[in-house]
Amino acid sequence: MTDSKENESPETHAPMLQWRDINALTLADESPCVTIYVPTTPVSNYREENRILYKDQVKKVGEALEQRDMDKYERDALLEQLESVGANEVFWTHQQYGLAVFASSKRFTVRRMMTSPAEAQGIVADSFHLRPALRAASNWMDYQVLCVSVQDVALYDANQDAIVEVDLHSDVPRGMGDALGKPDTSPNRKDSESAGSNSTDLKNYFKEVDKAIRAYHGNTIRPLVLAAVAEHQGLYREVSEHPNLLENGLDHDPFEAIRQSNLGEQAWQIAERATRDNIEQIIDRYNERAAHKEGASALEDVAYSATIGQIDTLLIDETARVEGSVDGNGRIEYGAAGDGYTDDVLDKIAEFVIASDGDVKFVPGNMMPTDTGVAAVLRYAMEPET
């Protein structure tokens, strides 16, 4: 086993699945690759069921590895890492709606997911099985909520059904005192009472928060909802350079909403329109580009464009499935999915797009501008056929 690991000790708390995780997994060239998905729940009463379901998949993986011609030490080391997940009972009390584990000789990645996989899976193959992860990381309803007050800062990943706090980087300020080196920020005073006390300090504070969020948590195309008191909304936007910050925000104390457990419900009312607008804008771009041969919908054309890095943004029908695979030259081999779930043309196309820094969105079929299951906005026009 090499020592290039992404999760050395996932004992009690696994990070949320992010876009950058998918990007790294698409570049994996080692074999075998172990993938495990387990539907979970944040309800702690079901932690034992979650643990048993995961152990069943590890057993399934162990049986599959036994059938492989591989070094016994490497096989045992892989299983030992898989068995270490959830060994601490506290781990199962910090779940969301899905658990994903990716293991090989070069990586060991454990992630929580905000969307539940359709079923528990334990797969050993020559590449990672990314279908559930792709859909979890590319959900069209995903957005973020940035909560800012004078005393605190918090960031949440969210969608229509769930909201999960992000573990902030240590360089993100946890309040104005932390950002400006002023220990007394009057924690008992409401933000609305201190809003106009020192606008220069507030601006500098908001600049530091904005800069840190972009630097350490900005690798996303998801809309960002600002949750802050009304008096701070305009001031924060005045200094912010975040490209995804929405025009409208949640304009009251976000930490009160957190205490009342309704931050997600309130933020979704703002984010829903933005997420739909985002997809509609992509569709408009596709229709405009397609008229100038800078859009593609034929599956063979999209597959080839994906392999040469030509696709800027890809829409995929979230329920569509095309059995088969795509080789490195963009050729589609149909009907090659022997077990029914490890090979899918659309998933493979999505992996190529992600590897070339393109954006992928899985959307409802009734929102798709084509009937082929895909719609690609190209970075440059397709070459005319000769």
Rank of each mutant, 00 (worst) to 15 (best):
A179K: 00
P369W: 05
R276C: 02
E30T: 14
Q144S: 10
P369G: 11
G98F: 07
A179F: 03
A137R: 00
S297H: 08
A303F: 05
K72N: 09
M176V: 07
L180V: 11
H232F: 15
C33L: 05
E385F: 06
Y216G: 01
L378E: 02
E280Q: 15
P369K: 10
L168R: 12
A291I: 08
K293L: 08
A381C: 05
R331A: 12
V145T: 13
G335W: 04
E272I: 04
R112S: 12
S116D: 10
G365L: 13
L226V: 11
D157L: 09
D178A: 03
T12D: 07
G177W: 10
L180T: 08
L79M: 14
Q310H: 12
L134D: 02
G330D: 01
A118N: 14
A162K: 04
D3L: 15
D184V: 06
F91H: 10
P369L: 08
Q310L: 14
K293H: 13
P32V: 04
Y236S: 01
D210A: 15
D357T: 13
D371I: 11
P187Q: 03
H292L: 14
T386N: 05
T386A: 10
P32G: 09
R174P: 04
R111S: 09
L134R: 06
E288H: 09
A24G: 00
I311Q: 07
G86M: 10
S9A: 13
P243V: 03
E385A: 11
G340Y: 09
P183V: 03
V38W: 06
A133T: 04
L130R: 01
S297A: 05
F91V: 13
V302E: 07
D277E: 13
F102A: 08
K207C: 04
M368Y: 09
L180H: 08
T185V: 15
